[in-house]
Design a protein around this nucleic acid. Structure first.
Lengths: 249, 249
DNA sequence: ACGCCTTGCCTACAACGTAGACTGTACGTG
DNA sequence: CACGTACAGTCTACGTTGTAGGCAAGGCGT
């Protein structure tokens, strides 16, 4: 993590690049610098806070300058998703595929939890761009997982099926988990903490009764079980030629 | 290009409530009217097109008037998701739970395909509101599915697990399917249609080779298989007390 | 020396969300 | 009948947004 801008953190708002001192110190701009600054801002203050002007301010630059490195706001958003997804490494060696997919699922989850504000982008941006036109960084995971599966003995068609089920579940799980996230941590009265007290008891009995169970949610465990079931089922049904489901253990 | 005045209901844009004639014709406003108009607009032109001013224009009213029925733009978005989700009926009778979940999965999918532009809202809005404070219409599906599962013999804890896995997969599948949607239908050259020609062949061999398979995607089938595997696995693992997996009815 | 090209700053504009004050119509109450 | 109250709808205005276009300054090949 670089601290070149020496930000009096997130509050150089008072001093918008007017002093030449600040001007001298700031690093040369580049797409990467811009994008990571954007990511930092989104992580810290949410998607709403990310505007060209604000980001420019954060970098001590004129907002217009950013258009050299991202031709749009949309492009900027795409760039952010790319930066985040680049941090996801997917093994391409020939080890046990199920285990590898488990591992990357957890990696992905960690990534999502580390950047919860970016998750809406991850799931939303691809909806507005046809598959082939997406930023390459976004397609890397897809390519790598396909590769992994085909090496494991799946036909390309089956690999695609597995990928879809797997990635779909993964995305869905992340959304679910983030949705249930408890905002205010020290409120220990379950109903209150989740805001469930507001629900009419008559028409939401199940949900209200669920409060204590809802409160503790082991996301990793839940994700793991789901993936296990899914991959096991898929393997049994599609018979990859080489690798086998490790029957026990 | 259609003539702008083709449908006087949806295009009073030229004539912003100035003529008394138009004024007389327009129906009394209500939250529901506003929300369905908003939904219509989003369906037709996407989320970006939905602004207060634009919506007001569409309704032949002053934009400010809308704030009587939605106190925010955010509230308006929430309202839209509610309207859409209200169309999802979840059976609460005691029939076979797996079959019921299959059916509602397809209902949900149909709904999503009917309103693809709303899907980002469906997955995104809940992220910004703690569970208990969400619009009630949004929580109905959750409550109903829990009810269904508990009646089927699951303990509340297990019901929650099943719900999470099920709904997670469902959401994920929808996102996947919409992401792969092919924009331009009559282009029949696979690589071109998907835009894959742009990918560097060297670093994306799997994806490029996948073009013909990617092109035809039977979403319903894929969804069904996933759900089957998932529910089957969950049932085997959690043993609901009453209902059994029907080998045959 | 020149001219070019990249980089950055600035101004300007249309569109946005929304606060607040205002007008008109409907109606219960005297 | 007149009156006050309530509420639906309108208008104006402010601050903020994304971004087009023009202009200034520095590095570099010739």
């Amino acid at each position: 993590m670089s601290s070149p801008a020496a930000d009096p953190d997130t509050d150089p708002a008072e001093d918008p690049a007017s002093t030449p001192e600040a001007k001298a110190r700031r690093p040369r701009l580049s797409r990467e610098v811009v994008l990571t600054a954007a990511l930092k801002l989104v992580d810290a203050e949410g998607l709403e806070a990310l505007s060209m002007r604000r980001l420019g301010n954060e970098l001590g630059r004129d907002p217009m300058g950013l258009y050299r490195y991202a031709k749009n706001r949309a492009d900027l958003l795409d760039g952010i998703t790319e930066v985040v997804l680049d941090q996801l490494v997917i093994p391409t060696d020939g080890a046990d595929w199920q285990q590898q997919l488990h591992a990357t699922a957890h990696d992905f989850r960690d990534l999502a939890l580390a950047h919860p504000n970016v998750v809406p982008l991850l799931v939303t941006r691809p909806l507005s761009t046809p598959l082939g036109l997406r930023p390459l960084g976004t397609l890397r995971p897809l390519e790598n997982i396909l590769d992994l599966l085909i090496r494991a003995g799946f036909t390309p068609e089956d690999a695609l099926h597995v990928y879809r089920a797997y990635y779909g579940f993964l995305y869905g799980h992340i959304l679910n988990e983030l949705q249930e996230f408890v905002v205010d941590e020290q409120e220990n009265e379950c109903l209150l903490r989740l805001g469930l007290h507001r629900l009419p008891a008559r028409s939401f009995p199940r949900l209200r009764a669920m409060a204590p169970v809802l409160a503790d949610y082991d996301g990793a465990e839940e994700l793991d079980q789901g993936i296990t079931i899914l991959l096991g089922g898929l393997a049994a049904q599609l018979h990859p030629t080489t690798a086998r489901t490790p029957t026990a253990t």
